[in-house]
């Protein structure tokens, strides 16, 4: 990512101009066709019947309930994964211990497992026919087809986002600054908040924003555990699917446009975070 820009205009090593423009055009055309156009289409469809209809579609009680549930889910998942992500990446980046590579593999597990399978795992454990099902029913605790199940599945799916962002960042920064803080008399917490955290805060923000986007947008795993109870266990993506299957296209796209907006916000924050991270990271131990 860190490219030296000295050779930017040196004609001798660069391709001919027409090759550069051709490559650039192909890349941009591809992006426009497969990314920008669908995004524009979402907003176009959503606003097809006018602003009024758009707002009406969003104010529909089932939709409002879906938005609320999505916000609750994200509000639980993101802090939980933030905490575990920081703890895990701290452990991995700053200490060596047996089973370290196993832990890294474990963190990556949700990336490699299909979300549907992750949902099914929870059904298998907590469902009526599952291992804990009878016990849960006896104690009148509902997990599957209820909010806790949705939250659990989302936590599982979004687990790697923050940790994966922080591990390489913290590894590249090494332990020396923390060690310096300790020798200067700082406690563990002081070291974290005054030395470690300022160095990783943009990485954390980036991780949080990615984690949040996925938590709000997760479909597969949530679909399996939710049960699709209208106005009660539907999240935004599930609501979009229901509306779409009922041929209420304008409403479906209106709700979908919320997720699309979220994506745009995510992109903007990501850009800022990357830019800031770039400013703070590469100064470590280079001679001027």
């Amino acid at each position: 990512m860190h490219v030296t820009r000295n050779h930017k205009n040196s004609g001798t090593v660069s391709e001919p101009a027409w090759v550069r423009y051709l490559l650039l055009t192909v890349a941009l055309a591809f992006l426009a066709l497969f990314l920008l156009m669908p995004l524009a289409a979402v907003f176009a469809q959503a606003l097809e019947k006018g602003w009024q209809a758009y707002v009406e579609a969003l104010k529909e009680p089932d939709t409002l309930s879906a938005i609320r549930l999505t916000l609750i889910t994200a509000a639980v998942c993101v802090p939980a994964n933030l905490f575990f992500g920081i703890v895990a990446s701290w452990a991995i980046a700053k200490f060596s211990f047996p089973g370290k590579s196993f832990l890294i593999t474990l963190i990556d597990l949700p990336f490699s497992v299909s979300p549907v399978v992750s949902g099914l795992i929870y059904v298998l454990i907590f469902g009526l026919q599952g291992w804990l099902g009878p016990w849960l029913q006896a104690h009148d605790i509902k997990i599957i087809f209820a909010v806790p199940g949705i939250i659990l599945a989302t936590v599982f799916v979004t687990f790697p986002f923050i940790a994966r962002e922080l591990i390489p960042l913290m590894e590249s920064q090494g332990r020396e600054e923390e060690e310096a803080a300790l020798t200067l008399g700082a406690s563990g917490l002081q070291t974290f908040f005054r030395v470690t955290f300022p160095n990783i805060k943009w990485g954390i923000l980036y991780g949080v924003i990615l984690c949040n986007a996925r938590a709000m947008g997760e479909f597969g795993a949530v679909s399996v555990v939710s049960g699709h109870v209208r106005g009660s266990t539907n999240t935004i993506p599930l609501q979009v699917e229901i509306l779409y299957n009922e041929y209420s296209y304008a409403a479906a796209f209106a709700v979908a446009s919320i997720l699309a907006l979220l994506a745009l916000v995510t992109l903007a924050v990501k850009t800022v975070a990357e830019w800031k991270m770039h400013q703070t990271v590469p100064v470590a131990d280079k001679e001027r």
Partner: peptide, 28 residues
């Protein structure tokens, strides 16, 4: 470490990169 009252100087300085020279020296 904190109780030993040692000053440690690292080969690659290990200065706090987000702090000014003043803040670095004042940290302890």
């Amino acid at each position: 470490v904190q109780e030993r009252q040692v000053g440690f100087v690292f080969q690659h300085y290990a200065l706090f990169r987000h702090m000014t020279v003043f803040e670095n020296i004042a940290f302890g």
